[in-house]
Design a protein around this nucleic acid. Structure first.
Lengths: 232, 232
DNA sequence: CAACCACTCTTTGTATACAGAAGAGCTTCG
DNA sequence: CGAAGCTCTTCTGTATACAAAGAGTGGTTG
């Protein structure tokens, strides 16, 4: 739930990191990026040699990944990357809805409007951004990250933010296997604007319902995208 | 998020357990029971010797406790048991509300009524139970555990149930330092009955609102109890 | 020919030894 | 007398060696 970063990491310096931390970040990144596909077996010695650490810090990293729900222990034979089923996506969204709606409610109640007003301006440029192809889409995702950060800050609740972060970890994997279509991104941008407006207006109920709808649409879109893809 | 128990543990056999698992359970139990008070420093060698395992499995146990949010790493000098502030209680309840309301909604939607009908009968005996002093109160808490288990089962969502379990871990600590008064327990029993009725009736909205109210009253009671106590 | 048992090999779980970093206390110098 | 620096101690972080458990395989026997 609580991630601890060293002060050097927070400063973005690439000062030598603890081996266990390096192993954790690398494995986590590879799982999220799909390099380590769901179902992949993780053998301790093999992974330890590959990453360049000994088994002790690697085990610590795997333990954290298990706590994150990205890896499961197989009885007897080591560990493997967790699978993603269509059912699990719906289940994740049930949790996500509960958390995001609550977070938005609190953000709309406690907010300092300033950062959201700034974000509103940026989100208004989103339609233009989405016309600029892949690079625009990437900048759009950065915008969403900034919105999430602003919400996390406004929520002022480490427990809730921690739970949200855990959900977002799994979302990152899902996003990979369900490339969203441009029309959906455009609609999503409008939905985000509505949520931002509600936060600025200090209307928790409106913000909550807008979030509910946004997540519903998002889930529908993700499930449709997955239905079309041959994989999974 | 996901807890993995060995099959021997699930059967309740006290077959030799892995050392790391033993260390985890003992430390977790001691933190939850308040034997290891908030702020207590955990030195690896010291704890390892006390529990009777070597440092390696102890570190694994501590890593899991950090993931649970029961322990935090102190920069430089080891680890310590996390503190509980009044603010953190309110924050925990904000998360708890989001999760429980969603869980109850889903339970009321998907439920197999049978277990809840059985629980309703049991909860009707709660007022009598609470007249029987300490032993009755303890049986009442067992009843609540059974209700929570029934809800977890009906929810059919590992993500949501996992998040709930994490919250309940922290609740156990809070319950310790805010002994509830008998009147509150009586009122809580009535609130639980209302929730159970709503689940049996298959009325998600009613169940959700009943839960909302129940948690609100619970928080008010906890905060009042803590205000009275000299400690903290 | 099939089933069961034993053996071996692989892989995890645990202990311990070693190295490096951080804090405390003492000494010394200004 | 105070402050700063150095050393010493203590603790964490990592590697490695060892033990035990499970799975797979081959042989043997009914």
């Amino acid at each position: 739930m609580t991630l601890v970063y060293t002060e050097t990491a927070m400063l973005g310096l690439d000062v030598p990191l603890r081996a266990s931390e390096r192993a954790y970040r690398q494995l986590r990144g590879e799982i999220l990026d799909g390099v380590l596909a769901p179902g992949t077996a993780l053998l301790e010695v093999e992974q330890a040699e590959r990453i360049g650490v000994s088994r002790t810090p690697l085990r610590e990293a795997v333990a954290r990944l298990i706590a994150d729900g990205l890896v499961v222990g197989r009885r007897g034979r080591g560990f493997e990357v967790t699978e993603i089923s269509v059912d699990s996506i719906s289940e994740l969204y049930e949790l996500r809805q509960a958390l995001e709606v609550q977070a938005i409610r609190l953000a709309a109640t406690r907010r300092d409007p300033a950062p959201f007003i700034a974000l509103r301006e940026e989100f208004r440029t989103a339609p233009g951004l989405l016309d600029q192809g892949d690079i625009g889409v990437r900048r759009y995702y950065v915008l969403i990250d900034e919105l999430e950060d602003a919400i996390d800050l406004a929520v002022e609740n480490p427990f809730l933010v921690g739970a949200l972060r855990a959900v977002r970890t799994h979302l990152a994997r899902i996003r990979r296997l369900a490339r969203r279509n441009p029309l959906r991104l455009l609609a999503a941008a409008a939905e985000h604007l509505l949520i931002i407006d509600a936060i600025i207006a200090g209307d928790p109920s409106l913000a909550a319902h807008a979030t509910h709808i946004h997540l519903h649409q998002s889930l529908v879109s993700v499930l449709a995208a997955i239905d079309e893809e041959p994989a999974l």
